[in-house]
Design a protein around this nucleic acid. Sequence first.
DNA 1: GATGATCTATGTATCCGATACAGAGTACGA
DNA 2: TCGTACTCTGTATCGGATACATAGATCATC
Lengths: 246, 246
Amino acid sequence: MAEHRLPPVVARMWGRETSPRHGPRPSLDLGRIVDAAIRIADRDGLEGVKMSSVATEVGVATMSLYRYVGSKDELLIVMADAAAPEPPVLDGRPWRVYLTDWTRANRDFLLGRPWLLALSQHTPPAGPRSLRWLDRALAALADTGLGYGERISIATTLAGYATRQAALAHALNRTAAATDDSIAGLAGYGDILGQVLDPDGYPELTAAVRANAFGVAAEWIDNADFTFGLDLLLDGIQALITRGNS
Amino acid sequence: MAEHRLPPVVARMWGRETSPRHGPRPSLDLGRIVDAAIRIADRDGLEGVKMSSVATEVGVATMSLYRYVGSKDELLIVMADAAAPEPPVLDGRPWRVYLTDWTRANRDFLLGRPWLLALSQHTPPAGPRSLRWLDRALAALADTGLGYGERISIATTLAGYATRQAALAHALNRTAAATDDSIAGLAGYGDILGQVLDPDGYPELTAAVRANAFGVAAEWIDNADFTFGLDLLLDGIQALITRGNS
DNA sequence: GATGATCTATGTATCCGATACAGAGTACGA
DNA sequence: TCGTACTCTGTATCGGATACATAGATCATC
């Protein structure tokens, strides 16, 4: 099996740096930097994260950071992993219960840190935290009789669902803010659509808007809608398991 | 019902600009600009899209663009909508067949234009193209007995699935490229994981890697894996419909 | 315990890209 | 025939990432 070189970022995330024998002892470590960056992102959003602001937060000169990360992009990638919490503990609950919890927890931390959404696109999960999430999901499905490939697909799909759901909620909030209207996101959204749609080109959508489907859905997003789609997925998984074991 | 002001970008996407009575006739229109920007993105990726490069492509001065878009961000939003193709035609096929097609087509154009993935986060769909996709999905579900809210949720979920799937495929390709290995993305990914994981912290994942779950899945991504997850969703939807009509 | 190789931390300099602003030209309405 | 409202463009600024070079610290080795 050919050895693949570890991308430098990945090595750093796992602390696999070859520690040097010479020179002054480093005065910080990647963790401190990443924490500072996360703190800033939480406070000011991703735009607030500049090499200079992070450096100030840590208390060093801007260029010092480059001793620990290869570039700003690298920093962002490491942040994306470090900002995730630990996955829910696996305590023998049935897979469906655990995965529901898992998916919801996944969405929830994305809601709390919307800037993560912008980062999720960059790399496949390869940090300690993300992989722990993956590992737990695989474990939850261990005695379903499903193969690894299937289990991985399921975990990916659920994580994707959580991401999407969070992204949607966040996007709606943004529009609400942009329109600087106090009206709830979805209602405003429906309202905007109503102004713009022509009934011929968009018959069904127009009908939906007229039926106030968006207005009604306004509070859905948080709970019912999430559960709704999730249950679709879980039902599908359930069916798969049953099929496989019959 | 309170009137919500249309965000300027939205107005522009729908050509709702108030055309001025005075002054020289505009020498271009938003469409030309957006097309140029898309051409550049296709060729050089999103990083290649600079106000200056777009201006050059169109053949005007950089600052001229600002007469048509309020900012670069606005341009990106409009691009995101314009870059989508038309949804598959609705020709009376059963909903499941159509939505399968719809979702696949959705994923496919994202695969062809990976830069769209980075933009999807910015706004909820409010452009003519995106909304046509939504409209068609709603229409496909018209005689299932489902309400508008449910249909919208379904469409959203499926679109999210397509996005996620495309993002995953793309991310894997990126890692493959970054490792500058000729090995297929997923295999290389599994390989990397193998180097980094400790079996105690990640028991299931380690097992999966050892079982070469990622290596085996290498070609999956394109077909089987996609269909797999999609069928989970569709099965769930099917169940919902049956339940509702009983 | 001196010396040089190897590191770290930092300051300065550059480069790039978005956009504010101001001026010059143009078409329509009166 | 103006004046006004608009378009196009060049120049200027500003913010932010990062290359590069310097100064000081530490350890290995003799």
